[in-house]
Design a protein around this nucleic acid. Structure first.
Length: 292
DNA sequence: GGGGTCAATGAGCATA
DNA sequence: TATGCTCATTGACCCC
C-alpha cells in the first residue's frame, strides 16, 4: 500500500474505494499550486473497472484523455534549461528538502512531484555510475595483484634453484672434508664450526627444509636438524628485518598487505621466499667457514 | 524495428 | 500515519 500518493475517490465508485492516482506522491506536492483535480466533476467512463484499482497514468494513458479538462499531453522530456538547473541543484545537494523542491518546481514550472522524481532518478543514475567506477577499480587492483603474484612465483622458483645448487655444493664440500687422510689437525679443530652444520642427508631435498606449512619453525618437528632456528621464526605479520631481500619483499608483498589485497596464498609465497633467502644466507656462512 | 534513455509508477521500507 | 526513500519496472521517445 502506497500511502504516500494522493488518491481521489471516484464519484461513481466511492463506496468501493476505487482510487485514481494523480501525478504527485505527497499532498504537499499540490499545495500552493493551481493544480486541479480533473476528476472532481466527471463521470468515469468504463466504470466496470471500478471493482479493481483503477489508476490513471498521467500524460501517456489513453484513459487519461477521457477526462474533460485534463491535459492530453504525451510524456514530455524536460527542457535543456530545466535539466541544467536541476543538475546544478543536484551538484549542490543530491537530496531534496521540501522547501528546495517547491522552490525549484516554481522556478522551473514543474510539479514538485516531477522535481522529486527527477532527483530520485538522478540518484539512481549516479549510483549506477558509481558501481561501474568501483568495478573498474577492482579490476585494476586484481590485475596488479596477478602481476605481483606471477613475479613472486618466478622469484620463488629462482631462489629454490639457488638453494638446491648451494646444497649440492655443500654436500660436495662435506664429502671432501670427511675424508680423514685429507684432514690435518688444524682442519679437525675447525670442526668446532660443527654447530653451523645441519645433518643433511644426501637425499634430503630443499623442499623438506622449506616446507614449513603455515609458516612456523622450519625445523620444528625435526629434532635432529641443527638448522639455525631463530632466523626461520617469522613474525606474524610476515615482515622482518636483517635480510638482503627484505626491501624487495616489502615492496612486493607487505605493502599490499596493508592495502588489504593480500591473500593467504600470496603470504605463503612470501614466507617461502624469505625462508629460502635465509637458507641461502646460512649456506653461504657454512660454505665460507668450511673454505677458510 | 530494436536498443538506449528517461520520466514516471508501484511496492516495500524507514523514520519522525 | 504521513512522508520520502530505494528498487524494479513501464512506456514514450529518440536515434541508428
Amino acid at each position: 500500500m502506497d500511502s504516500g500518493r494522493l488518491f481521489f475517490d471516484s464519484p461513481s465508485t466511492s463506496s468501493s474505494r476505487s482510487r485514481l492516482i494523480l501525478l504527485g506522491s505527497a499532498k504537499s506536492d499540490f499545495q500552493g499550486t493551481n493544480y486541479t483535480n480533473p476528476l472532481s466533476n466527471c463521470a468515469v467512463a468504463g466504470s466496470t473497472e471500478a471493482s479493481g484499482a483503477f489508476k490513471i497514468r498521467p500524460f501517456f494513458t489513453s484513459k487519461y484523455e477521457i477526462y474533460e479538462g485534463f491535459p492530453s499531453e504525451k510524456k514530455r522530456r524536460l527542457t535543456s534549461e530545466q535539466i541544467r538547473m536541476l543538475e546544478r541543484s543536484f551538484e549542490e545537494e543530491n537530496k531534496l528538502e521540501p522547501e528546495r523542491k517547491s522552490e525549484l518546481a516554481n522556478k522551473l514550472g514543474l510539479q514538485p512531484r516531477q522535481v522529486a522524481v527527477w532527483f530520485q532518478n538522478r540518484r539512481a543514475r549516479w549510483k549506477n555510475k558509481q558501481v561501474e567506477r568501483d568495478l573498474d577499480l577492482l579490476k585494476a587492483s586484481y590485475d596488479a595483484l596477478l602481476i605481483d603474484h606471477d613475479a613472486l612465483i618466478k622469484d620463488n622458483e629462482h631462489l629454490r634453484s639457488q638453494v638446491n645448487l648451494l646444497l649440492e655444493k655443500l654436500q660436495e664440500i662435506e664429502k671432501g672434508a670427511s675424508e680423514p687422510s685429507r684432514l690435518n689437525p688444524a682442519d679437525q679443530a675447525a670442526s668446532s664450526t660443527d654447530d653451523l652444520l645441519m645433518p643433511l642427508s644426501s637425499h634430503q631435498k630443499v623442499e623438506d627444509l622449506l616446507s614449513t606449512g603455515s609458516g612456523g619453525n622450519a625445523s620444528a618437528g625435526k629434532p635432529e636438524s641443527r638448522l639455525p632456528v631463530e632466523p626461520l621464526l617469522l613474525e606474524s605479520g610476515g615482515h622482518h628485518a636483517g635480510i638482503h631481500c627484505e626491501d624487495d619483499m616489502n615492496d612486493k608483498g607487505y605493502n599490499r598487505c596493508r592495502d588489504g589485497v593480500f591473500t593467504g596464498h600470496h603470504h605463503k609465497l612470501l614466507q617461502q621466499q624469505h625462508e629460502a633467502a635465509l637458507l641461502i644466507q646460512w649456506l653461504d656462512r657454512v660454505e665460507s667457514t668450511l673454505l677458510h
